[in-house]
Simulated assay, not measured.
Amino acid sequence: MVAQLPQTTASPIVYPDDDGLPMSDNTLQFEWIMTFYYNLDWLFADNPEVFVAGNLLWYPVEGQVKTRQAPDIMVVFGARKGYRGSYKQWQEKNIAPQVVFEILSPGNTQTEMNRKLIFYNLHGVEEYYIYDPHKNELSGLLRPQESETGDRHLQVIEEMQGWTSLRLGIRFELSEETLQVYRPDGQSFATYLEAQQQLEQAQRLAEAEAQRAEQAEAALAAEQRKAQLLAERLRQMGINPDEL
């Protein structure tokens, strides 16, 4: 009799949701990451097929746990909104993030950034933007749709001043002090604090306008009541107010 060997069941592959690295090294970098995240999320809030994430691990290839990257910001057209522990591309109709942002800190090394560029170039990113808020330097790379040589690798955008993202429709303007980013409607990106202040100001204006409308309505009602009383007195005096 031949003994049957017990069948072994392969353990499921675990894709960690955390790479152990901090999202930011300092408050300036963190503020810019959140500014890009919130404004892009607001920009596409009405489109359920645009997913915006910050510091989320992206696994482009099933089974390759070590092949991963966590862009500071990534935007995916064609992926539904929703919560994820990581972005597993094979579970997302194999759609790669089309746009990624990296916000630099003094701790970023050239070797690290080269590694990220190779990753984004290899795995299909169409637009790659890098901003150093400490030096106020912005650079961008774009994957050409067509090329005479057939080369569709990410290529440097020669002039970023006034550049408008093909995918996002946002425009970049660099001043001597900082970066300004404008939405397609011409409104500038706002920090979370600025957005809250704008919201509170809009609420105060709306409340003041509602109060003015109530006061105007009350004044009109008072005038109408006075007119009614006057008409009643005229009738008591034998005068028909409708004939005046």
Rank of each mutant, 00 (worst) to 15 (best):
4 Q>E: 15
5 L>W: 08
6 P>K: 09
7 Q>K: 08
9 T>D: 11
10 A>E: 15
14 V>H: 14
24 S>N: 03
26 N>S: 13
30 F>E: 15
32 W>P: 00
32 W>H: 12
33 I>H: 06
35 T>R: 11
37 Y>N: 07
42 W>V: 12
44 F>N: 07
47 N>C: 12
48 P>C: 07
49 E>V: 06
50 V>R: 04
53 A>V: 04
55 N>H: 12
56 L>T: 10
58 W>L: 12
58 W>Y: 06
67 T>N: 09
67 T>S: 03
67 T>V: 10
69 Q>C: 15
70 A>I: 00
71 P>W: 03
72 D>T: 00
72 D>P: 00
73 I>R: 04
74 M>W: 04
76 V>T: 15
79 A>K: 09
82 G>I: 05
83 Y>L: 12
84 R>K: 15
84 R>C: 09
85 G>F: 10
88 K>N: 13
88 K>Q: 13
88 K>Y: 06
89 Q>D: 10
90 W>F: 07
96 A>W: 01
98 Q>F: 04
98 Q>D: 08
99 V>M: 00
102 E>N: 03
105 S>F: 04
107 G>Y: 01
107 G>C: 09
107 G>I: 05
108 N>E: 02
110 Q>M: 11
111 T>K: 14
111 T>G: 14
112 E>P: 05
112 E>C: 00
113 M>Q: 13
115 R>T: 12
117 L>G: 05
118 I>G: 03
120 Y>S: 02
120 Y>K: 00
122 L>A: 15
123 H>T: 03
125 V>K: 06
128 Y>W: 12
128 Y>P: 05
130 I>L: 10
132 D>Q: 06
134 H>T: 04
135 K>R: 12
136 N>C: 02
136 N>S: 05
137 E>Q: 13
137 E>H: 04
142 L>I: 11
142 L>C: 04
143 R>L: 00
145 Q>E: 13
147 S>N: 08
147 S>I: 04
151 D>S: 10
153 H>R: 11
153 H>N: 12
157 I>T: 03
157 I>R: 08
158 E>D: 09
158 E>W: 01
158 E>A: 05
160 M>Q: 03
160 M>T: 05
161 Q>E: 13
161 Q>N: 00
163 W>H: 15
163 W>G: 01
163 W>C: 01
163 W>K: 08
165 S>R: 08
165 S>Y: 03
166 L>G: 12
168 L>C: 05
168 L>I: 01
169 G>L: 07
171 R>T: 13
172 F>A: 03
175 S>K: 03
176 E>D: 09
181 V>E: 01
182 Y>D: 08
183 R>Q: 13
186 G>I: 02
187 Q>G: 05
189 F>V: 00
190 A>C: 14
190 A>R: 13
193 L>T: 14
193 L>G: 11
195 A>P: 02
196 Q>R: 13
197 Q>E: 14
198 Q>V: 04
199 L>I: 09
206 A>R: 13
213 A>R: 13
214 E>P: 02
214 E>L: 11
215 Q>G: 07
217 E>T: 10
217 E>I: 01
221 A>P: 04
221 A>Y: 02
222 A>M: 09
225 R>D: 14
235 R>T: 14
237 M>W: 15
237 M>F: 15
